[in-house]
Design a protein around this nucleic acid. Sequence first.
DNA 1: AGGCATGCTGAGAGCAGCTTGAGAGTGTGC
DNA 2: GCACACTCTCAAGCTGCTCTCAGCATGCCT
Lengths: 225, 225
Amino acid sequence: MRLLVVEDEVRLARALQKGLRSEGFAVDLSHDGASGLESARSGHYDAIVLDVMLPRLSGYEVVRALRRDRNWVPVLMLSAKDGEYDEADGLDVGADDYLTKPFSYVVLVARLRALLRRGAPKRPAVLAAGDLVLDPAAKQVARGDTPIPLTAREFSLLEYLMRRSGEVVSRFDLLEHVWDAYGASDANVVEVYVGYLRRKIDTPFGRAAVTTVRGVGYRLEADGG
Amino acid sequence: MRLLVVEDEVRLARALQKGLRSEGFAVDLSHDGASGLESARSGHYDAIVLDVMLPRLSGYEVVRALRRDRNWVPVLMLSAKDGEYDEADGLDVGADDYLTKPFSYVVLVARLRALLRRGAPKRPAVLAAGDLVLDPAAKQVARGDTPIPLTAREFSLLEYLMRRSGEVVSRFDLLEHVWDAYGASDANVVEVYVGYLRRKIDTPFGRAAVTTVRGVGYRLEADGG
DNA sequence: AGGCATGCTGAGAGCAGCTTGAGAGTGTGC
DNA sequence: GCACACTCTCAAGCTGCTCTCAGCATGCCT
């Protein structure tokens, strides 16, 4: 779990870094709002701990900027209770949780854990053609209930065909998108891999999901063959 | 319904015992953490009312110890709001509900009834994949009933994989989120640690929770392998 | 039917990617 | 300050993926 801590008080920042690391988190630091925002935008973090009072750009502005970019990374805000800012403001602006300084370290960790727990992964949908199912995130393919192991190249090929299922796709198209090479390469490699694919997803099931369209290319049947 | 009240302020403890008895509960008392834990372990209780600030063993430690034993008896925590410990802390560690002193007696009874209605099998947040279980708060992992000791790094690795179970996670992702480094570092360290993990959670059980997806990364099987 | 174009497939070389053991460096507890 | 555990690097070895090549099969046209 990778965290970004944006805090200008160096001693506190270091203490947090050390403590959180000992909890098993990977922790980066930023010491002002502008660089914090920049780091946060990288999208590398599972959660962000953000002080409100920061040089150059306040914590509020950082969160607002992130949310404006549609970046929904969980944010835990910290602030001194000096009356100027308060919790409602923080939550209002798009933070997910809020702690007032001085805060207890164990509470911070607990709240962070809760945030991470909530920030559940939203997995993209699977691709389907009849009983043929492909899960891009899991890199898995199945015919009905039978899982089918594919190599990386076979998987990419099938994925591309399924994304354009029903259409005829030319060898050139495939070379370009699956092999990341256009023009130069020999199209025979496509034929070879279509062959491999058929032996795995069609032949054992007596089906024909991949159809050859002579002189044009291949088509993945939308009903799975 | 048999209750255990663990509370070191004798006057408050007695008052609770009397009040709860009049509600029809059977009530036992403990006055420090260690004896409270011992009694709780007996498994005779339908719920436990637990103060946080206790001599010998804090309420926090008592819950943690119980959950480590897989004892899911409902726990209602009580604490003075002195900043050191608080609600998030208690809930994170595995308590089921939380009350801040001073509290209203009727609220206490209402919460207790709600807890008892929900019953014991309400587990705190643990990550599970088949019979493989990881408890982030207790820092423990088990395969079925067998606890598995892991080092810090192994634990972080498994935790991250389990949070994204079913998905393929790239070495790069792992370096970023489990190791405190992105870009520069050598991905071989990931491979080495996947190896360590397998020798602890897979090999001894003849299972394969962690799958290599060649050219892409690793996947934790959602069913535990 | 014959001839040509197009597509399929088996064999095998080369090599990227993965696993593993050994060991150095570092931190931590007794 | 010694012993042990943990983390990480390095390099050797293996596995199996990718791609090329050449020969064969199939479809299409005259």
